[in-house]
Design a protein around this nucleic acid. Structure first.
Lengths: 219, 219
DNA sequence: CCCGATATTAACCGCATGGTTAAACCGATC
DNA sequence: GATCGGTTTAACCATGCGGTTAATATCGGG
């Protein structure tokens, strides 16, 4: 009875693949994803995950060992689904900043709109266990800012942009894109937005954000 | 033995104020503030709060009844310490937007710098229990956006600003100001910032943010 | 100096929850 | 059809934690 708690899969998929196997693992992962994002790790019970996966609680431990390990996996998964969408575009040397920014804005507003808990979950986990991201980034490395840094510098030399560190560029972009989703309940209350109001807010945002951001870059 | 769990203080402060009384209550509140902001509500133990206050665990319940009630109090307190700093300035009809924005930026960067856990805590709690803010805002009302809305409209009519809803204005401002603090661990990892790097980042931010934001407003 | 009211504590309780275990199950292989 | 390895489950265990209780300390007033 060897527990497959490690991420390494079955060595020989041909033998000993009775039925579901990997599929069950996926079901649990998806369930954990849903539950953790909705409640945050600390407010989630492994039982709830098991139920959502239609599976016995012990099976969760069978596959992932501990709740913390599963939480790590989900966090990594979430982060891994977000970062490339932003930095994948930013790192592209073929496109100009004027092209990248609107593309990212559109993409992110769609992405976050479809995942109401996503932003809040990420920030929440970041706050609950700041060391985790250090651990995860260790393998994965930092993000390549060189392309965006070069484009900013060249734009500045041409008088097109103000002088601005790539760090500020990234911080501004992420703050403008993600924060409203992360504090949505507060924002809706504060601005007295119902569901329709929120949709309208996002609609206007999709329109104005690229201009706002690009205008901010100019001197 | 009447529990003072309600927020109403002693009716007659003269009689029955043996020693510390209100002072103890404050100590517990401060301890709870520190602990909750550091760990988040879900990851905090009442025992830890009691210890930090130098007090027996039962006393926490004696004063505040339940952990949730105490958590509510701390959340309200935190929110109440943030909002006026932003909306107090924004609502001032005497100052122009050009004056307000730099003032808020300076103030917020100082405020958040001195409170590393603050932003992360707020977003985290917002995510963990979105209904809470509804409850709290019920008494307290929404924020007065009319001043800023008027100033934006007049600025737009004068060709000074782009057409922009006050909601977007607020969302942008808060995102730019608060988000970097809320995700600090990630940002430091991502941008490979050590403590000194983070300070430099904030220094640059203090400089560029007012210009960036105001430039974004112009057409 | 005692009385009554509040403040504070030690000890306790019940329960939810993360994790374990041993048995049952299932499909393949011989 | 017996065996074997991986899979799934029911039952169980230990304990951390929120909350209660009853007893003690503290102090002001009569």
């Amino acid at each position: 009875m060897v527990k497959p708690i490690s991420s390494t899969k079955r060595s020989k998929p041909s033998l000993a693949a009775p039925k579901a196997d990997q599929e069950t693992r996926e079901r649990i992962l998806d369930a954990a994803h849903a539950v953790f994002l909705r409640n945050g790790t600390a407010n989630s019970r492994t039982q709830e995950i098991a139920a959502e996966a239609g599976v016995n609680k012990a099976l969760v431990h069978y596959y992932f060992g501990t709740k913390a390990a599963l939480a790590d996996a989900i966090f990594a998964r979430a982060l891994g689904s977000l970062m490339p969408r932003i930095f994948g575009i930013l790192a592209d040397p073929a496109r100009s900043i004027e092209e990248k920014v609107p593309a990212i804005v559109r993409e992110q507003i769609d992405f976050q709109s479809a995942r109401p808990y996503f932003a809040g979950y990420l920030v929440s986990e970041l706050h609950a266990e700041p060391e985790r991201i250090t651990r995860l980034m260790a393998r994965g490395g930092t993000v390549p800012l060189d392309v965006i840094r070069r484009q900013l510098r060249e734009g500045a030399r041409a008088g097109k942009f103000r002088r601005l560190g790539a760090e500020q560029f990234v911080a501004n972009l992420m703050g403008l894109l993600i924060f409203p989703f992360a504090i949505r309940p507060a924002l809706c209350e504060l601005l007295a937005l119902d569901a329709a109001g929120w949709r309208a807010f996002l609609e206007e945002r999709r329109r104005i954000l690229p201009d706002f951001f690009m205008a901010g870059l100019r001197p």
